[in-house]
């Protein structure tokens, strides 16, 4: 079965370099990979589940139904999108009443869920192809990095955290452990407690990275990037503090390790922290 990549809200608008790099990597690995087309917001479980769990279920189901219609497995790299799709599917699988409720509305727009759909995290796809990744490395990434998986990536066990680490290490990157590795980026907290969200979550981690030997922060989750990017801008605009260590998507490092040039996926464009020092180190 083909993979239908779910873009979500953040990636196409705030991190197009990661979108392009992800497709370069998928093509390079010869994966049956294309966009899941016509997608909507995942829909953000942190907001919608809090307002009304049935509404979250209903609106998330439209994406699942689209995947079923396009006969693809949904692939998410944003942990928030993954959790939303994964948990929605689990709920309608295990609760026939909820499936009926969802289908009653979906039928009004010509869609239906027959539970043929599946949801996977992009890390799972990459890990299944780890040997192929290793064989395709032409430029080992000799850097030190701090990684941020994001707490939704840990919600269903240690599988995704282990995959994340294994893939990073396979590229030749030295991971630096920090006291903040399991800490939430603060994205949802931003709605209710902005000070803690900015200065005691993402900000704390960014401050630590600046003082460390790390060359960059590696992430996979678009929701976390949204928060880190916001916090970088808040520090700059409201405190006059500029961070220097860039925030890099795992796909970018994979693409570089496969021999792609930074300009092949627009690595320099539209970033709150320039990756130029990192690029120079990796390319040299």
């Amino acid at each position: 079965m083909k993979y239908g990549y779910f873009l979500g809200c953040v990636m196409p608008v705030k991190m197009p370099w990661a979108e392009k790099a992800t497709f370069l990597v998928a093509k390079h690995l010869n994966l049956p990979f294309d966009y899941l087309k016509g997608t909507l917001c995942c829909i953000r479980p942190g907001v919608w589940k809090a307002i009304n769990p049935d509404w979250w279920l209903l609106l998330t189901s439209q994406n699942l139904a689209l995947a079923e219609k396009q006969e693809v497995i949904i692939v998410d790299s944003c942990n928030g999108c993954y959790i939303s799709h994964y948990e929605c599917l689990e709920e309608i699988k295990n609760n026939p009443q909820k499936l009926l409720m969802v289908n009653n509305y979906l039928e009004k727009i010509g869609l239906k869920i027959e539970l043929k759909v599946d949801v996977k995290h992009f890390l799972e796809i990459l890990y299944e192809n780890l040997d192929k990744i290793k064989k395709n490395i032409v430029r080992p990434i000799k850097i030190k990095a701090i990684r941020h998986l994001g707490c939704h990536g840990r919600k269903h066990g240690e599988k995704l955290p282990n995959y994340f680490d294994e893939i990073i290490k396979s590229l030749g990157i030295e991971i630096i452990d920090t006291p903040y590795d399991r800490m939430c980026c603060g994205l949802l907290l931003y709605l209710s407690d902005p000070y803690t969200s900015v200065y005691k979550r993402a900000g704390l981690k960014l401050e630590y990275i600046e003082k460390s030997d790390a060359d960059c922060l590696i992430f996979i989750c678009s929701g976390c990037y949204d928060q880190f990017d916001r916090v970088v801008r808040i520090y700059k605009d409201e405190k006059g503090i500029e961070f220097k260590k860039p925030i890099i998507h795992l796909s970018e490092l994979l693409a570089l390790s496969f021999g792609y040039k930074p300009e092949d996926f627009g690595m320099m464009y539209y970033r709150s922290i320039s990756p130029i020092n990192l690029i120079n180190k990796v390319i040299s």
Partner: peptide
């Protein structure tokens, strides 16, 4: 500049999805 289509194939481009969501 990043080598992508100007508009992603989400509901930004495929308006039918948006109209269906609004209907729901």
């Amino acid at each position: 500049k990043c080598g992508l289509d100007r508009i992603p194939p989400t509901a930004h481009l495929i308006k039918e999805s948006l109209y269906n969501k609004i209907k729901i």
